[in-house]
Write a protein that binds this DNA or RNA. Structure first.
Lengths: 248, 248
DNA sequence: CTACGCAATTCTGTATACAACAAACCAACC
DNA sequence: GGTTGGTTTGTTGTATACAGAATTGCGTAG
């Protein structure tokens, strides 16, 4: 059976494992027994094993010296590093795109997404549904940007770094939803988006790079705000995996 | 049995597979049958499977839509992208190190390695053995640099990007060995090394970053030289995996 | 009450059997 | 001769049995 098949047991185990970890159903540092996961996911050990190997490659879990896996614990420094790394790679992608000079057609998709977000921002108030739409459009914009570098290698690595729930471009966006300044942050982010496309079009590589680096700092800002009042963090994807200075 | 154990069948398969691929024992695009590898490595399918999964995570092979793996083919663009990516991440590590300001003790190891390379360069001519020593010291210097950022996340990613044979800091060094300008390139590289440590010590983050990016360009220069006369490339680790414009 | 050692259990590493799928091949028919 | 159909072979996906190692818990001795 194909590895990418929807009905594949391996895929089933991968998705279930990923979801269980990200939703905090295991405590950070908890050992993941293959047999336990076998019962839980309703598949045999072989697919579970494959899922564990993949999760380790993604950085969600880590191996014990004596064998087996434990759920990884993330420090605050890990989070900011991951976010910065994402910004670094997105900045690189943007610079490459600018230096290469994409055609008008290649830029079309990104501009279309931008217009969609602009339209959302026209509304005086954003509903929860609007916010979902925004999260989706935001994710799509970032992927479109990665694609503009026209480099499978770069795409691969930035996708990888952004696969951690915290480092994802949409990772902390949801956290703003209930914050009063949410709208302002979204508008700021959208200005970054528009500026980076403008920079790419004008072949201003350094500017495009700097913009994406700064853009990632918005995520760090949201992270800081979330860390300030602890409660919010747990409702975040992957939130429970964050190890706090207090609980060290 | 531990996954890291030396005698582990999985480890055996991982090493054997990696070596076989890098040494070009498979053609690029060739399908890797699990059963074939099973015979070849003298282990069962389970460890072979684990080795394949790992090799895919490292980017040496890729999955077919219908299942199974094929040896990845690298275009020239893939190589330069991988090298640039390594430079980007090493630059980030260097900048982080500079901004953080490592203690004298933390810098000691890097300086020791630098001194070792300086000593090698004092000799009027470098023997093959000297070159091996240089390759080793060079690799150690780079790892020491990655470590100076004091960030497991950054270390992890730069190590990952540098795990591809071409992107490795020592990837193209061996290629210079027989070139007349080898000595000059090594001296240039060593100046980069010394300068980046100096920049880190002086907390000059932007300079440290720029230096490491430029440092990686040396690898690109070597790559260009190697591509110019095709013969040399095959004796390189991973060389046979490079797909040429001519053979497209 | 604590510390040490032994035993039982649980876990992972490994091999292998079985089933479903894909591709290649051959043959027959148009 | 080309195409289509079925068959056959090889491949991967999955489950599971077995062995060795690690961990846990208990009992005992100090």
């Amino acid at each position: 059976m194909s590895r990418e098949a929807e009905g594949s047991q391996t895929r089933k185990a991968e998705l279930a494992l990923r979801q269980a970890i990200v939703e905090g159903e295991f405590r950070a540092g908890e050992r993941l027994s293959e047999l336990t996961l076998t019962e839980r996911f309703g598949v045999s050990r072989t697919p579970v094993r494959a899922a564990l190997a993949r999760a380790e490659a993604e950085g969600l879990i880590e191996t014990l010296p004596s064998g087996g896996y434990v759920v990884r614990a993330f420090s605050e420094a890990d989070l900011t590093d991951a976010i910065d790394l994402r910004g670094l790679l997105e900045g690189f992608a943007a610079r490459r795109a600018a230096e290469r000079g994409p055609s008008r057609g290649e830029l079309a998709e990104a501009k279309l997404i931008l217009a969609g977000i602009d339209k959302l921002l026209l509304k005086p108030e954003m509903s929860a549904e609007d916010f979902d739409t925004y999260v989706d459009l935001n994710a799509r914009f970032h992927r479109a940007l990665w694609d503009l570098a026209q480099s499978p290698t770069i795409f691969r690595e930035v996708e990888r770094v952004a696969s951690l729930p915290f480092a994802s471009p949409s990772g902390f966006v949801r956290l703003q939803a209930h914050l009063p300044e949410a709208r302002a942050v979204v508008m700021l982010a959208q200005d970054h988006h528009a500026s980076v496309i403008e920079a790419i079009e004008a072949r201003e590589g350094a500017r495009a790079e700097a913009l994406m680096r700064e853009h990632a700092r918005l995520a760090r800002r949201n992270l800081q705000a979330a860390l300030a009042d602890r409660g919010r963090l747990d409702e975040l994807p992957g939130g429970p995996l964050i190890r706090h200075a207090a609980s060290l």
